[in-house]
Structures are given as C-alpha cells and as structure tokens.
Design a protein around this nucleic acid. Structure first.
Lengths: 341, 341
DNA sequence: TTGTATGCGTTATCAA
DNA sequence: TTGATAACGCATACAA
C-alpha cells in the first residue's frame, strides 16, 4: 500500500540511501563517480519496486517546488485558455507544473491567491491581475517568489510585464472608424476598477481627440468584460433622448462584449455594419464565427503566455533571482478588419 | 530574506514549537487546551513576523498535499474551461488547490500526467481521459490517489464516473431529425481512438436503426474534436459521386466540429437549415452565437465538474479511501433545438 | 496546559 | 567510489 522510498530502493539494491539519490538525480555527470554496476543495480531496483521520487520531500529539502501558478480573471473567456496554453507549453518543457487559478475577477479571490501561493511555496507566478495592489505583490517578491504580470497593471513597478499597448490599440480602432467617416463613435467600456477598462477608455478618448471628434459622455456606457448585461445597454445607447444623436459605430472593450452587442443589435433589428459598426478587442477565435464576423484588435495571446513563462523561467533557472532589472515586453497588436465595420 | 518558520514564531512568542503548531492548526477545539493568553501571544507573533505555514513541510508530515489535478484533452475547447470552473468552485471551498493539465489529446501526455501526479503526491485526480489504459489508472489507485473520471471511458472499471448517456444523446438527435422527415442523415464523427468518438458513432447508428433508416458508410466522415480540417470534409460529403444522394442533415460529434461545418457549408453556398440541417454536441456558449444558432445536445458541463469534484472530496474527507463502491453519476442531457435544424 | 523528541523522504556535506 | 548523518519545516505521541 504505502509507496516505496529511496530507503527501500537502497535496501533492495544493496547500497546506501545516498547512493540511490546520487544515481537517480544523475549526479554521476558531476565530479561524483559511481560504478556502472552500482548504477545498474539501483535502476533495476527502481524499476522493480516502481519507485517514484517523492516531490514533496524533495521540495522541502531543496527549497524549490518546481511549481508555478497562473492567475486569470475569467476562465470562461476564450482568451485565457489560449493564454494558459501558451504558458503551459513552455513551462512543461522545463520540468515545472502550473497551477491555474481563476480569480473570477474578484478582489478577494486575487488576494487569497497570494496567500495560497505563499503557503505552497510556488517558485513563481504569472499574474493577470485586475485588483491586486502593489504591496500584495511585494509580499510574493519578498518571499522570493518570482512574479511576471501579463497585461497593463498599475502596481507593476519593479516586476516583469508582458503586454500590448492598450491605449494605442483602441486609439487605432477609433481612428480607423473615423477614417471610414464615422462621427458618432460609442464606447462600450469595461469595468473602470480594472486597468484594461481604464486604459481602453483612455485610448478611446485619445483616438477621438486625434481624429478631431468631440468626446460625448452620452456615447460611453459601462459593462463588464464577461459580457453579461450588455443587451440592456444597447437600447438606451441606440435611442437616446431627443437632441442626442445615436452612434454609427460602437467600440467594445473586448470581444465578449462586442459579440453580445452584436446579438442585441441584430435582435433589435439593426443591421451591422450598415446601421452601426461594431469593433471588439482580443480577437478570440469566436470573433470569426459570428455574423457579421467581428472587426477587432488582434492580440497574439498564445505568444503572450509563452513570453511570460519564458521570463519567469529565465529568472528561475538562470540563477540571479530578483536581481535582473525588470523586463517590459510589448507584444505587437494588429487591427483585424472583418465584416462588422 | 528567508521566511519565518514555526520555530521563529515560537521564539518570538516565548513558547515551544509544539504550542505554535497546536494554536495555528486550531487544535484548541479538540481535547487540547491552551490558555487564552498563550494563543494571543502566538497569533501576535504570527502577525508580526508575517508567518505563513509551509505547506510543503506540512504535506510531508501529514502525507497529504491538499492538491488535486484535473486533466482535460483540449483547453481551447470552451467546453473544458466550464468544466474546470465547476470543479474549481467546489475544490477551492474545501481548502484544496487544483492543477490543470492539458493533455492536448495526446496519448504520451496523458501517460506522463500519471507519472507527474505520482511524484507530486496529489491527493486525487479528475480525468477526462481519451487514451489512458486501465493499468495506468491502476498505478494511481495503488498509490492511494483517488480517481474520478468524467465522460465515457473504457478503462473505468472500479472508479467513480460522471457522464451523460452519450449513445442515447446522439440517438435522440438522429431520431429528432428523422422525425422532421430527414432520410439522409450524415455523421461527422470524432476520432475513433477515443471513447466519445466511438460512443457517438454507435449512438448515431442506433438512432438510424430505431428510425428505420439504413446505415450508409458514405454518409459518415471522420474528423477531430478540435474542429480542424472539417472544411475539407464537407465538399465530398455534399457532392458525392453519382449514384449517392447527399445528406439533408449532418450530426457532428461536437459543437466545434458542427460550427466549422456550418461555416464551410455557408461558404460553399448551402443554406442551413433549408439545404442541410446541422446538429452539434456539448452546447458550448458559442453554439448560440453562430448564425444560424446551433441545435445541439446540452450537457450541463459545470454540473459535471462539480459532481466529479464532490465525489473526489467525499472520498478524501469522509475517510474510507478507495473503499466505497464506485459511484456512477449520470448527468441528464437535453436536446437544445435552435435554428440550424 | 505546555514542552520534548521523533520522523515524514529527500538532498547534501562530510568522511571513509 | 560509497556510506553515515544532518538538516528542511512541520505535526504529533508522549511526558511533564
């Protein structure tokens, strides 16, 4: 029932426990020399007993868990599974495992993520944090846990960050729409208590300014990135009280919101893009599935995951933890023009 | 730099290490009695030093890691994030964390999952396994790791399984189509080296038989659940060589495949459902987004995740590991009729 | 009510 | 080239 330990292997092979450890960890390549014969015997015993090293004991001894963690705000947003995949692929190639944590975009869950990681002694974390404060992240860093953030993040001072230029991206969208002759461009903004929500709204305002259009608060409404409740926002936006002109284009803060808007608009009898154009943000695979297909900002999300994981592993394997100066990787985005504009 | 241990807390509070352990683990409620004053001092020291229990050491000592793992075949299929969410929600409520592992539908990765879990000494795993053999799962069980499988699985003898009735579900779809007058019903089958691929094909054949329709191999083509390469399957299916009649309905093995088929059909100028009806399987949220919206088999995927996690935790917390007789939970499915049929 | 001592399964530092 | 032996940080049986 109880699993074999190194001691069992040692007894079985007729050698000492230390020898087993040396053989198994391939220390033979160092200056340590162990006879061919002994090695053979050890491996035979391992095989015979079905011995699997106890990673827990190993972690306690080496002070390294080979465990990383990735926190995301919404697993149900297809954007994040792609991010996770990208990160997983490089992490697993380096003998690490990764814990996935869905914070559900909740401040309390983000905070408890920190505690859990502290207790589990993970070697590093990748954060897509919407609510975490700088000092909470500092707790991780002080405990020797390496941290990489993905996405714009206000408390990012001193840590590696992988992101796209959010303001610029929305800016691009707005100017593209203005270039197509749109004068009344609305923004379906994300939660303003999150950095992407704020940055994207800023980008929208910048874009308007650059295009010589006035900012009209009546054209901005606020939703959540999850896309819930967007349908209720559309009627008041599209049929505003008298003197206000309705928009001819809507820039949503992400694809989930844009797709919900699309559905609500179609349901209400609006033609997209003839009556109103719609743009998203992220370029999730589903942006191509909807009708009309969605014009959006393409983020290479898999690449962002990979980059973040690589930064983390660099710090972890190349020694010098917490020493190197923080990296800031900006992943290029591109405007993906489809049928909704 | 180095983090405080219980010994540090003990010194700081002026008590012994054991006392700290007792207080922190809330053993005060047992028959162990510790004075209010001592407790206060311990907690104060914990607070002051920012002590966090070392879960690694604790795991080594208690022989429990409070770690579970969930293996899925394709994180990019929106079905699985919903499953993960369901499981996470109950797992996290019980002071466990969950490792998410994407096997990428690869046999080798599924096998290495087993090794990794064995070494990490996880307390339990939830498997959505497409390739794992019975004896590989037995390795987990022999090591004392609790196992719950989600979905149909051939090597499931003796372990808890949460699943829907796959054959019946496809059966229902075929008979529904037959009832609408379809005589030529095609099947876009999933990989036949996976249980769902096989069961769904079987269900298709059963449905045909029940509806009094002949099985025609020309109406069955084989794709992958991921949905890649479906577009190439459509032209030969829809314009078969001379004597063969093309189908008037297509039953896909999952929604990803159905949606790709939908897109290919529309691209080729077919009208859905007038020229050909399309059905999917899973009812991912995106089934409702596409045009026409997709008729499909609704699986309550979040519920399946929750159920699986509950079964696992029951075994874990209610003692008696591996003793109880295996549970077999069948989650109800339902035909969700939309515009594609 | 609190303290002492031991072991969980490793790795690593010494000697031999 | 190999073998004792001491940590790693904690929980717990037993003593006090």
């Amino acid at each position: 029932m109880s699993r074999p330990t190194q001691a069992d292997v040692a007894k079985h092979a007729g050698v000492s426990r230390a020898t087993v450890s040396l053989v198994i960890n391939d220390r033979v390549r160092g200056n340590v020399r162990i006879s061919e014969e002994t090695q053979r015997r050890v491996w035979a015993a391992v095989e015979e007993l079905g011995y699997q090293p106890n990673e827990v004991a190993r972690s306690l001894r080496t002070q390294r868990t080979q465990l990383l963690a990735l926190m995301v705000p919404d697993l149900a947003n297809p954007f994040y599974p792609l991010l996770i995949r990208g990160a997983q692929s490089v992490v697993n190639d380096h003998d690490y495992q990764m814990l996935v944590y869905d914070s559900d975009d909740k401040s309390a869950r983000e905070a408890s993520f920190v505690d859990i990681m502290l207790r589990r002694r993970v070697d590093g974390v990748i954060l897509v944090a919407f609510h975490l404060k700088g000092h909470e992240v500092q707790r991780l860093i002080k405990a020797g846990i390496e941290v990489v953030a993905i996405g714009p993040w206000l408390g990012a001072a001193g840590i590696d960050v992988v992101a796209i230029n959010e303001r610029q991206a929305v800016n691009d969208v707005v100017r593209y729409l203005a270039g197509k002759g749109h004068q009344r461009i609305a923004h379906l903004a994300g939660s303003q208590d999150t950095p992407p929500g704020q940055y994207r709204l800023e980008g929208y305002r910048q874009g308007l300014a650059k295009a010589g259009l006035a900012y009209d608060p009546a054209l901005v409404c606020f939703g959540v990135f999850r896309g819930e409740g967007i349908a209720e926002l559309i009627p008041p936006l599209m049929s505003p009280p008298e003197p206000i002109e309705p928009p001819t284009a809507i820039v949503a803060a992400n694809d989930l919101m844009a797709i919900e808007a699309l559905r609500a608009l179609k349901g209400a009898g609006y033609r997209v893009p003839q009556d109103v154009a719609v743009c998203g943000f992220d370029d999730i695979p589903q942006a191509e599935w909807v009708t009309p297909s969605l014009t959006t900002v393409g983020q290479n999300v898999g690449e962002m995951g990979r980059q973040a994981a690589m930064l983390l592993l660099q710090r972890l394997v190349n020694g010098t933890p917490n020493q190197r100066k923080p990296a800031r990787v900006t992943v290029p985005h591109k405007l993906v023009i489809r049928d909704s504009t």
